[in-house]
Amino acid sequence: MPVESGTCIIETAGLTKRYGDICALAPLDLQVSEGEWLTVMGHSGSGKSTLLNLLGGLDRPTAGRLLVGGEDLLAFSEDHLARFRREAVGIIFQQHHLIPYLTALENVMMAQYFHSVPDQAEARQALERVGLGKRLANRPGELSGGEQQRVCIARAIINSPKLLLGDELTGNLDHKSTRLVMELLKELHEEEHFTLVLVTHNQEVAGWGGRTLFMDDGKLVKDLRHERKGDDPS
């Protein structure tokens, strides 16, 4: 088990999100060190996606403190938050959201464009790295679910984020594809040293990480550190 020696990248205190009466996220205190691989599990409706959206700067908490990379996201303006999203975070969704009218390559370049300047060679390299070197010019509609998810991964890591967030990113994939994607993530995690937070229902996926949070009804019920699966392939 690797020792998490890095500094704290995520630090929350009393983080709360309410939708009217519904408390999607009860006051939550959490520390995540840099380079950690964290998995979040829980029942449907337990507030996992809500937590992830808050961490990614997509949404604002109702109350509490939220520091990412030492910066207080609550103090950010809307535009500053957008900048935070494009520079510090990569997000991968369950329904591998890709822009339908752009090719795989162009989808990756779109992320580069919003971040700084599009760079075709670099985007191609990123896609080659996720094993899609031959599907560059295909639109999302022409790719399989697993391939689409890999395009999303390439897009999420293209701007070298500090934080990579995945919301049920293997939810729609079969066992084999899931494995492929997870191996890819592990490889990237080792090379790029980003912090990874994955939300999943899948016990097997959770095994790839080094720490698992269990949530129920917006509350953190268990925080478990464990062996990482990829270290001894089964």
């Binding site: 520079e87 580069q112 971040h115 700084s116 300047v117 760079d119 670099e122 293209i158 701007n159 070298s160």
Partner: peptide, 14 residues
């Protein structure tokens, strides 16, 4: 060295 940082620099220069 890092591509994202390099792109950031180019964007700033532009």
């Amino acid at each position: 060295r890092q591509a994202a940082v390099r792109r950031k620099l180019i964007a700033a220069q532009l």
